[in-house]
């Protein structure tokens, strides 16, 4: 077992992503137009929305890993599920931190019960339960099956949560995702670029996390 960044391609990917990220920040700061009434706050969602997208993508991967674990019964899928759950929760908590920061100047108070943020919060709570279950669920082999089924249940619940919250909390007009489609290219292109870069970053993080779990598993299993 050797370091993740010993093999050439991972190192190349890391350098590539660092470059892309710096370009992304430079591009957002310089090229995107300054929206009249929001100024810098509007530029927050070039990062806020991609993190939410990566978070939900990650929870989708947890579901896929869960299904594959049941079909194949192969240990690897459980590691993919665990890695995706951890990174997903990292990004979702970033969204829950940056959301209120963006909302304070624009909507006046930090927390508004509006559909997207509420869905993210409920999903975050589900995954708190997921990690508690992984800690207290019993011996490791059984916990793998429970984690896989929880991953499936959690993602199956996402559309239901979103619909119920959409009708429960009134829609706030100036929400980034809602505005997205009706944006001038000046804002749309950098946004999609940022989205792509975040997804590529996520792919590397996932591979890295799976590698670290693998190394830890090797160490634990041999002992």
């Amino acid at each position: 077992m050797q370091f993740f960044f010993h093999n050439k391609s991972n190192r190349v990917w890391l350098v590539l992503i660092i470059g892309l990220m710096l370009f992304n920040i430079w591009n957002i700061v310089v090229n995107t137009p300054m929206v009249p009434d929001q100024h810098w706050a509007q530029k927050i969602f070039y990062v806020h929305v991609p993190s939410a997208w990566v978070g939900f993508l990650s929870y989708f991967i947890v579901m896929v890993a869960g299904i594959m674990y049941f079909i194949k019964g192969d240990e690897h899928w459980d590691k993919v599920g665990l890695a995706a759950a951890e990174i997903g929760t990292l990004f979702i908590s970033l969204v829950l931190i940056t959301g209120p920061i963006w909302a304070t100047p624009i909507w006046g108070q930090p927390w508004i019960w509006e559909p997207r943020l509420t869905t993210t919060l409920i999903l975050f709570l589900i995954y708190i339960g997921y990690f508690m279950m992984r800690a207290f669920g019993g011996h490791a082999e059984r916990v793998k099956r429970y984690a896989a089924s929880l991953g499936i249940i959690a993602f199956v619940d996402v559309p239901i949560i979103f619909v119920s919250v959409k009708f429960w909390a009134p829609e706030i007009q100036s929400h980034p995702q809602v505005e997205m489609t009706s944006q001038p290219p000046g804002i749309l292109i950098p946004f999609l670029l940022s989205l792509g870069i975040f997804t590529v970053l996520y792919r590397l993080m996932l591979k890295y996390r799976i590698h670290v779990i693998q190394v830890n598993y090797k160490r634990v299993a041999d002992v």
Partner: peptide, 14 residues
């Protein structure tokens, strides 16, 4: 009647 082949089971990796 019954043939059990290379069963492996571990609890917490033991």
């Amino acid at each position: 009647m019954l043939s059990v082949s290379n069963i492996s089971k571990s609890f917490n990796y033991r």
